[in-house]
């Protein structure tokens, strides 16, 4: 029973990380129809930058802020400098992000090598605490991580549902041509969404570097987790990313816990069933 509860908590903690990566990935796809293959690279870049900042300043908070800001700026540059000129050419956009991801990954190997890095957790979260009402002890950092994901999800939801920017953005997901025809500046929305998505990926990199560790290859495993989460949950929907991340996080942890040889097969099986039953994902709109 205790093992089951721990696996569940681990699953939720993984889901929290997956959500932060998948939400940005999904929004970028939803609004711009861009499969951002560099999303994993931005994630890893953010993690490494966070490690460097933490090593210099001994401040975890500064590390995550700096990583988020730097990857958001890089995402903005990628969108404005390269992708903007190829709007609507989906394959070209995907290929550009692939080329960028190759370069980023290679330069990261050149800078940080193949070693694994871990970012020390912020001091108040360095130990485990008892979960109220049970005999279970669990890492306070992981619990905080779940809280961060919930808060980010709530902030994104408020932004999408309660601000004028969010209204334009959601309209852009449904029909971006109509939004442009109405005289709204869709380009600014595109830039904003890309920056937010990239910044979230970078921050998730720092969170992951504190929870687990950073090594080359982590970029593609988070890219595929984000892919799986949005395929399961549905593209371009915030709630879909949350549901998808939860499903994939649970499948991963229960797979590792109960049948490690086929852990990925479980994620795959879930994805396959969703694709057969609902090709647009659990909460995706039919197109």
């Amino acid at each position: 029973m205790e093992e089951f509860a721990l696996t569940t908590l681990n699953g939720v903690a993984m889901a929290a990380l997956y959500f932060l990566v998948a939400a940005g990935f999904s929004l970028i796809f939803g609004v711009m129809r861009i499969v951002n293959m560099a999303h994993g690279s931005l994630f890893l870049l953010g993690g490494y930058l966070g490690w460097s900042v933490a090593a210099l300043t001994h401040s975890w908070l500064l590390a995550i802020v700096a990583a988020g800001a730097a990857t958001a700026a890089l995402g903005l540059m990628l969108q404005q400098g390269l992708l903007r000129h190829y709007q609507g050419q989906e394959l070209t956009e995907a290929l550009i992000t692939i080329a960028v991801s190759i370069v980023i990954a290679d330069l990261l190997v050149a800078t940080y090598g193949g070693l694994s890095y871990q970012i020390p957790a912020p001091v108040p979260l360095g130990h485990s605490i008892r979960i109220p009402g049970t005999a279970l002890r669990y890492s306070s950092y992981s619990l905080a991580l779940i809280g961060v994901a919930l808060a980010t999800g709530l902030a994104l939801w408020l932004f999408l549902e309660r601000t004028i920017w969010g209204v334009v953005l959601r309209a852009g997901i449904d029909d971006r041509q109509m939004v442009a025809v109405l005289g709204l500046n869709i380009q600014r929305i595109f830039a904003l969404v890309f920056a937010i998505g990239a910044g979230l990926a970078g921050m998730a990199g720092v969170l992951d570097g504190t929870l687990l560790s950073l090594v080359p290859g982590v970029d593609s495993s988070y890219l595929v987790a984000a892919l799986a989460a949005v395929i399961v949950g549905g593209m371009g929907s915030l709630e879909g990313s949350a549901v998808g991340a939860l499903v994939v996080g649970m499948a991963t942890e229960f797979g590792i816990g109960y049948f490690p040889s086929y852990a990925e097969a479980l994620t795959f099986a879930v994805m396959a069933v969703v694709l057969v039953v609902r090709p647009t994902g659990l909460l995706g709109k039919a197109r």
Binding site: V35, L223, V224, L227, I231
Partner: peptide, 13 residues
């Protein structure tokens, strides 16, 4: 583009 994404996920699986 959705096809591209799903096949990428399958390949990585």
């Amino acid at each position: 583009i959705y096809f591209l994404m799903v096949t990428l996920a399958l390949g990585l699986v």
